[in-house]
C-alpha cells in the first residue's frame, strides 16, 4: 500500500467544471472520506484516481509514481487500485470465490488460500465460497466486493458510496466491518459518501467537496468542531447560523444573549454557528417558543423560535418539551464566528 497524492486536479465536462483544482494527500494505511452532496464532483474525483477518466490538469501519484498528469496516463488495469462501486457490482455469473479471485494470478486463484484469507478479513464464513451473488444480502455483497478489491493487494482502495443502497441498520454495521477490514489490511482507502455521520465515524480524515472545490480537509473532529465556513457547519453538524455582534475580546451578543467565541473576531458584524448539541434548556436563558419536536428516544430534536430567529436544539429524550411550549434556552461551550457577508 502507498500514499495517495492528488495535486491541482481539474476535470470539466463541457461547460461544467466537475472537479476544480483539488489537492489532497491520503497518508499510507489511512482512510479518507470524501464528503459532499450529490453532484459535488466526488465520484468524478474517484474515477480520475481509478483511471476511468483522465484529468484536464494536475497530477495523481501513488507514493512517487505519477499515474496521471505526466505524459500518457497509466490505464486502469495497470494502476493496481481496488475499486468498490455502489451496490457492489459483483460479477453475476461467478460465485463468491471466483469473484474474490478474479484479480489474482491463475496459480494463486487455484490455490485458494488468498480467497479464504480475504473471507476471514471481511468476516464472512468460508462456507460462502460457492454461493452465487444473488444468494447474498446487500451487506454481504458489499463485503465480497471489498474482498475482491483487496485480494490482489492494491496500492489504494476506492469505495464509491458503498453503503448507500443498504438500509439504515445494515449500513452502520457493514460500514464498521469494512473500516475494520481496511485497517487490518493496512490499506490506503478513499471513501466517497454524502452521509456525514458515515464520513465522521469511519474515517481518519474528512475532505469536504462542494461544487468541485475542496472546502476543507482535516480530522473528523476538526471538520465538525472548526468548520471552514457557516455552510459547511450547517452541512456537517446540522448547525444553525444566527447574526451576532462582536464585543470585547471573545465576547459577542446575539438572540440567545451573550456568548463566548472560540477566537476573537476582527469584524463587528458576525455570523455565529451554533450546533444543536450546544443549545441547552436553561432556566436562566432567554425565552423561546417550541415549534416542532422530533422524538428519537435517546434524544429529541426541537425546532425553536427565539426572538424571530429559527434554531435547532438537541435535548435528552426524557426532558423533551411539547410543541407549543415556552422554554428558556442558553448556549453551552464556545461558539464559532465568521465575518458577516458585506451587503450593499
Amino acid at each position: 500500500m502507498s500514499a495517495l497524492t492528488v495535486t491541482g486536479v481539474s476535470k470539466a465536462f463541457g461547460e461544467t467544471l466537475a472537479v476544480d483544482d483539488v489537492s489532497l494527500h491520503v497518508p499510507h494505511g489511512s482512510l479518507t472520506a470524501v464528503l459532499g452532496p450529490s453532484g459535488c464532483g466526488k465520484t468524478t474525483l474517484l474515477r480520475l484516481i481509478a483511471g476511468f477518466l483522465a484529468p484536464d490538469a494536475g497530477t495523481i501519484a501513488f507514493d512517487d509514481r505519477v499515474v496521471a498528469g505526466a505524459g500518457r496516463p497509466v490505464p486502469p488495469q495497470d494502476r493496481r487500485v481496488g475499486y468498490v462501486p455502489q451496490e457492489g457490482a459483483l460479477f453475476p455469473h461467478l460465485d463468491v470465490a471466483a469473484n474474490i479471485g478474479f484479480g489474482l494470478p491463475r496459480g494463486e486463484r487455484a490455490a485458494g488460500a488468498r480467497i479464504d484469507e480475504m473471507l476471514d478479513l471481511v468476516e464472512l464464513p468460508r462456507t460462502f465460497r460457492g454461493r452465487a451473488p444473488h444468494e447474498l444480502s446487500g451487506g454481504q455483497q458489499q463485503r465480497v466486493a471489498l474482498a475482491r478489491a483487496l485480494a490482489p493487494r492494491p496500492t489504494v482502495v476506492l469505495l464509491d458510496e458503498p453503503f448507500s443502497s443498504l438500509d439504515a441498520s445494515l449500513r452502520e454495521s457493514t460500514g464498521r466491518a469494512v473500516a475494520r477490514a481496511l485497517r487490518a489490511a493496512q490499506a490506503t482507502g478513499l471513501l466517497v459518501t454524502h452521509d456525514q455521520s458515515e464520513a465522521l465515524s469511519l474515517s481518519d480524515q474528512v475532505a469536504v467537496l462542494r461544487d468541485g472545490r475542496l472546502i476543507q480537509a482535516g480530522s473528523p473532529a476538526d471538520v465538525y468542531l472548526a468548520p471552514h465556513d457557516p455552510e459547511l457547519a450547517r452541512f456537517v453538524g446540522g448547525a444553525t447560523s444566527l447574526p451576532g455582534r462582536a464585543g470585547q475580546g471573545t465576547a459577542a451578543t446575539c438572540a440567545l444573549g451573550s456568548v463566548t467565541l472560540t477566537h476573537p473576531s476582527s469584524a463587528d458584524d458576525l455570523v455565529l454557528v451554533i450546533r444543536p448539541d450546544q443549545v441547552v434548556l436553561d432556566p436562566a436563558g432567554v425565552e423561546a417558543r417550541v415549534d416542532e419536536v422530533s422524538f428519537y428516544g435517546h434524544d429529541a430534536a426541537i425546532r425553536l423560535t427565539v426572538a424571530g430567529a429559527a434554531l435547532v436544539a438537541r435535548v435528552p429524550g426524557p426532558s423533551a418539551p411539547a410543541a407549543g411550549d415556552r422554554v428558556r434556552v442558553g448556549v453551552r461551550g464556545t461558539v464559532h464566528a465568521y465575518p458577516a457577508p458585506v451587503r450593499d
Binding site: 481509478a50 483511471g51 476511468f52 490505464p75 486502469p76 488495469q77 495497470d78 494502476r79 493496481r80 487500485v81 481496488g82 475499486y83 462501486p85 457490482a89 460479477f91 453475476p92 478474479f102 484479480g103 475482491r148 478489491a149 490482489p152 492494491p154 476506492l158
Partner: peptide, 17 residues
C-alpha cells in the same frame, strides 16, 4: 443491459485488459 459498464471498470481495476 445485463452487463453494465461498471463490471468492466471493476475488472479493469483488478488488472485485466
Amino acid at each position: 443491459e445485463q452487463a453494465p459498464v461498471v463490471l468492466d471498470h471493476v475488472a479493469q481495476s483488478l488488472g485485466t485488459g
